[in-house]
Write a protein that binds this DNA or RNA. Structure first.
Lengths: 342, 342
DNA sequence: TGTTAGCACTCACTTCTTTGGAGTGCTAAT
DNA sequence: ATTAGCACTCCAAAGAAGTGAGTGCTAACA
């Protein structure tokens, strides 16, 4: 199979761009008017015929115009999309008055992104790949309950209430605190292994029992993968007729509501080490229900090895150029938001 | 206008019940077969004509069957629905292995409820009307940052990182902790007023500055009304044709996604002091976009004056009987979940 | 040899009409 | 007071027909 010559590329580009705008199958006459190379519709038809044979475009039915196939979109994203640097987004203003808590920020970000792009969006909390314990504190809430507070790098605060079945006096508590802090401080999760734990228990002497319980609690708390996923703009999909028939819309929104499915997307995109922007077109997406969509994900990083993921879900004919620009902006800005605490 | 006689009531009841099942306008023949009183369709027609004149049912168009009007539904809910005690719901099993954190529990509850009822659901975090401070703890995370952890009644843990602009030695910290705890312990939010604060500052002596900052932080943290709303089952509305045309569905789901609109519902239903179950039919709902729906809300209470709200959003022809049963069960069970900590 | 004009053909969409059926209201008989 | 019967209404589903955008193919042209 021979490759695409220059003219074919131009025509393919024109087809895709037009389709991105209109969402309607595009015919030969439209293209013959659109392109700078002056060609009659008949010629375009011949070329289109070739392009179809090569698998870049398809006809929804005989005697309709052509629409890009997944392969076509892929070609478009890979070759036709020159990443011109985008102007600084309006996100900037928002960054200034940054809200308090990470959760809020993330929700806000998802919302803004959805509003500016008109697609559905998702964002995850940063996953502590190698996040380190910064501070641990145990305190007695009342006789029977112990509160463990753990602060991770990046000021991620976790807490857990641990029920006690034996008394614990203040002095012991103090000792435990010192012990825990000096031992755990600076360790990342994978570094807190069985060895560390048994050593700790040993050092605790007569309190090894309680240390055991507490450590279990602490460990569970730390490793509790709070991969929260926030979504926004689900209803944006109704703006695209090709997605808004009841069946598809329902499935899509369900997927966005039941975040768990999205997790697979996230993990996949996080694993990917390269540039950070990932484009899934149609069937490429790990989520079946999104086979009629495109998903663009980006990874943001908090320096400490904390990585999170932002994603945009839209129709295949999404404005890849704009979306990728936005995401690029966003990820770099998220960085700066979280780096410096309030 | 004369009142409904016995037979009219029976017929109205039959009409509504049938309509609840089918979702289609119901005609006279159907009813004539349905009811135990053996009447011909003609008689039913006469009665229906009366019922329509009285405003309990309407015709979508001439020569279609009748469907209940809002007034009809209202009558049904108020008089025809005898609240027979329901069997203990399957919720029970779930209660046993109760998940850790309140947030999780609430999300789960919303989800379960949505699954069992096939309607959209929402649930709020309990609002601390009079929630009391149980425990306060300040600790130094590093030189420049102070972590304040506050445990409220019902083991609601809040935390905030407070930036410091002066050094703070351990001894002082200890004192502050004791001071804060002894003063704030057992107080509810409205009880922490300016008087308390100034008294505290006084007692802090040379550290009144820092106490000021900390108190501000604490106060803000406590009063930060985290009225979170969780929703689930939004896509259930697609199961009801009368709600699932693109326009309506989109608006509805949007309302469920952008929780803020729901807040008005919640506050309204929380204010209502009576039985706890509230039914909004059509236009009765404070939310405009839900004028084609019915909303049933219930209040759950955590004893300590913490009140939250659960709601079900569905078509007007929802199964009020089942829904109200479920809600009644649920609220009483939520109580027991939160009462006894793990 | 690449390009183009022309033509017959396809097929989704829209609009209009037809038809069937469910349902009503009214009247006259029981 | 109840019911059978009938004419009438109106929605909804099913055809029927016209429209137009688009294609593929062939033959002519530079």
């Amino acid at each position: 199979m021979e490759e695409l010559d220059d003219r074919k590329i131009k025509i393919l580009d024109a087809i895709i761009r037009t389709y991105l705008e209109t969402g309607e199958p595009v015919g030969s006459r439209t293209i013959s008017k659109y392109t700078d190379l002056n060609l009659s519709s008949a010629t375009i038809r011949n070329e289109m015929s070739d392009l179809e044979e090569l698998g870049y475009i398809v006809q929804p039915h005989t005697s309709a115009g052509r629409i890009p196939s997944d392969k076509g979109y892929r070609f478009y994203v890979d070759h036709l999309l020159l990443n011109k640097e985008k102007e600084i987004s309006d996100m900037k203003e928002f960054v200034i008055e940054h809200t308090e808590r990470m959760e809020q920020v993330l929700k806000q970000v998802a919302k803004m992104l959805a509003q500016t792009t008109n697609y559905a969006t998702m964002i995850t909390t940063p996953k502590s790949t190698g996040g380190k314990v910064k501070f641990v504190q145990l305190s007695l809430v009342d006789e029977a309950q112990l509160l463990a507070v753990i602060v991770m790098d990046g000021n991620l605060v976790k807490n857990k209430i641990i029920p006690l079945n034996q008394e614990l006096d203040n002095e012991t508590l103090l000792k435990l605190n010192i012990l825990l802090n000096s031992t755990l401080n600076g360790l990342s999760i994978p570094e807190i292994n069985l060895g560390t734990i048994s050593r700790l228990k040993e050092q605790a002497g007569e309190y090894s029992d309680i240390v055991g319980i507490v450590l279990d609690g602490v460990a569970e708390t730390i490793s509790r993968e709070e991969l929260e996923i926030y979504t926004s703009g689900a209803t944006n999909i109704f703006k695209y007729p090709e997605l808004s028939d009841t069946q598809k819309a329902s499935e899509l929104i369900y997927a966005l509501e039941e975040k768990q499915q999205l997790a697979s997307l996230v993990t996949e995109s996080l694993q990917n080490e390269n540039t950070g922007i990932q484009v899934y077109i149609g069937d490429e997406s790990p989520i079946q229900t999104m086979k009629d969509c495109s998903v663009v994900t980006a990874t943001y990083e908090l320096g400490d090895g904390m990585k999170g993921s932002v994603g945009i879900i839209g129709p295949k004919r999404m404005d890849y150029e704009k979306v990728m620009g936005h995401l690029k902006d966003l990820t770099s800005q998220l960085d700066s938001i979280f780096k410096k605490p309030t």
